[in-house]
């Protein structure tokens, strides 16, 4: 199924093919007013952060220069996944310098490309890694925070407060669009992040345990149970093991969370763009 979805992505890719790499390289970047603009912003800050033309140019450059190793979706093939860089607190400047200097001892070469081109690549990769602030939000963030505290905080943490079963949402608005969050609330099982897939197991003694699967190999399974306890089991010791495709998170349909409440909650979630937990 995922393949079919991917194919659709390629069709789109081919349709916008006129923005081919060859053209971009033959038409000097300085000809484009946006990219030609001097780097007036402070050193280390991407002058093209939200510039749509630059991001388009960056995409074409990425596809010719980076995608062979990092994959068309920048999620990595032989080179690492680049879309998680910002989520773990990597700065634009650091990514810029890595492209410029390369990674010694690896295939990742240094680049003598003009700064503008490198910044355009940074802007593109960041654009598919993080998301702009929510637009046209109609809800009430204060009410949303109350809903969050009563409905979500049992499992989700924000700024160190809340449960541990679900993902930390401290900076969720920086990495998920409003639409993605809405889908995650209404239909959480449509796309489950690794480490949050539901699993149910029955121990030798007949105890039924439900939790989120953290890791699995051929012989063992590691979970966090619904009481937030880390537990490891040998598969051979289990009576039953059911790997759900579903999320551990319940569905919040309109019956449990009305449209207005959803708006409020999303308005609140949209404010969560805090520092990454790893970089406090």
């Amino acid at each position: 199924m995922a393949c079919i979805a991917l194919n659709r992505v390629f069709l789109i890719l081919f349709i916008i093919a006129p923005l081919s790499a060859a053209r971009i390289l033959t038409a000097p970047l300085s000809a484009a007013p946006v990219l030609g603009a001097p780097l007036a912003s402070p050193q280390g800050v991407n002058p093209y952060e939200t510039d749509r033309t630059a991001i388009r140019v960056g995409r074409a450059l990425f596809e010719t220069r980076c995608a062979q190793c990092h994959g068309g979706d920048a999620k990595g093939i032989s080179g690492p996944d680049l879309t998680v860089l910002w989520a773990v607190g990597t700065s634009d400047d650091r990514v810029f310098r890595t492209i410029q200097l390369g990674v010694s001892g690896s295939i990742m070469p240094s680049s003598s490309a003009p700064d503008q081109e490198i910044w355009a690549i940074v802007a593109y990769v960041k654009s598919i890694s993080t998301v702009p602030e929510f637009e046209n939000d109609t809800g009430d963030a204060v009410r949303g925070q109350e809903i969050f505290a009563s409905t979500c905080a049992n499992c989700h943490r924000v700024n160190g407060q809340g449960g541990h079963l679900g993902p930390d949402l401290t900076r969720i608005a920086a990495i998920r669009t409003r639409e993605m969050l809405m889908r995650s609330i209404r239909d959480p099982s449509a796309s489950v992040a690794a480490g949050y897939r539901a699993v149910t197991l029955v121990t030798e003694g007949g105890q039924r345990i439900r939790g989120a699967m953290k890791s699995e190999d051929a012989f063992s399974i590691l979970i966090v149970d619904t009481d937030e306890r880390l537990q490891g089991y040998l598969k051979a010791d289990l009576q039953e093991l059911t790997r759900g495709e579903r999320s551990l998170m319940p569905e919040f349909g309109p019956d449990r969370l009305g449209d207005e409440e959803l708006d409020d909650l999303l308005r609140y979630l949209g404010t969560l763009r805090g520092a990454a937990p790893a970089r406090r």
Binding site: M1, A2, C3, L6, V9, F10, E63, A67, Q68, G71, G72, D73, K75, I77
Partner: peptide, 10 residues
């Protein structure tokens, strides 16, 4: 190599 590869990770 001359190409981009999209691996189905699911």
């Amino acid at each position: 190599s001359g190409g981009i590869i999209w691996i189905d990770r699911e």
